[in-house]
């Protein structure tokens, strides 16, 4: 276990192993999202109250899951970078941030579109919606901090600290619907415990969630690979890789 993590220190090793893993995650993401969306949008039964508008759940819930998971991953990478000074961790964190922001936006937007026919409003300052909006601003803050410093080390440290402190918002998002009165209903989709929907609705949702996670891993690996080449461009192994020019 330790030797495996030790190897992660080396950008070269990360570059090599990710090359082998990448196609699997792309295939898994494409297959799961294709199956999940066709099943969810065309074959899963409609809801008895909401009819077909309930199908927005197949985008809304996976996007909201990713929005939160990516932020937690970013905070973990930040901790690893700050304590052990592992540069790959910082590169991974930097490459995740835009996807996390995009997923947060998708969950906010799909939620607003869903809110109009269901609740009768597209926005309400309730605890769940507001804390999710704060998450979006935290993502923008992390991205902006990375661009705001001329020294990469300072930028990485500032972004890591913001990610680690900002992770406090994640339990607030998760439990907001239980702690306070909100317009948003409590969670339907749980992997453990009681599920608020029958299997023929839940299975395609599970497939979509897994597909979104595979997509996230594939995009992060791919972007980290190009970031490694960019940051290590003066290293011998990268120049050898590029055909030994110059």
């Amino acid at each position: 276990m330790w030797s495996f993590i030790n190897k992660l220190r080396s950008p070269k090793w990360f570059y090599a192993i990710s090359e082998r893993l990448l196609p699997w995650f792309w295939v898994a993401a494409a297959a799961l999202i294709l199956v999940g969306s066709v099943w969810g949008l065309a074959f899963a039964p409609a809801d008895y109250q909401q009819g077909n508008s309930f199908r927005i759940i197949y985008v809304h819930v996976p996007a909201a899951f990713l929005a939160q998971s990516i932020f937690v991953s970013m905070a973990v990478c930040g901790l690893v970078y700050m304590v052990w000074k592992i540069k790959v961790a910082d590169m991974v964190a930097a490459m995740m941030a835009p996807l996390g922001a995009a997923m947060t936006f998708i969950s906010l937007f799909s939620g607003a579109v869903w809110g109009v026919p269901t609740w009768g409003t597209w926005w309400m300052w309730d605890a769940r919606l507001t804390s999710m909006l704060i998450l979006f601003f935290l993502y923008l803050g992390v991205i902006a901090l990375r661009g705001a410093f001329s020294s990469r080390d300072s930028a990485s440290r500032a972004a890591s600290v913001l990610a680690m402190v900002g992770v406090i918002n994640i339990p607030i998002i998760k439990y907001s619907v239980d702690w306070w009165y909100t317009l948003h209903q409590p969670a339907t989709f749980t992997v453990t415990g009681r599920v608020g929907m029958p299997m023929e609705m839940w299975v395609p949702l599970l497939i979509m969630v897994l597909g979104f996670y595979s997509f996230f891993i594939a995009v992060t690996l791919m972007r980290t690979r190009s970031e490694i080449l960019r940051r290590e461009s003066n290293k011998r192994w990268v120049r050898d890789l590029a055909g030994g020019e110059r």
């Binding site: 039964p45 409609a46 809801d47 008895y48 759940i57 969670a187 029958p198």
Partner: peptide, 8 residues
């Protein structure tokens, strides 16, 4: 809306 969905 509550957290329960079901087919018609």
């Amino acid at each position: 809306h509550d957290e329960n969905y079901m087919p018609p």
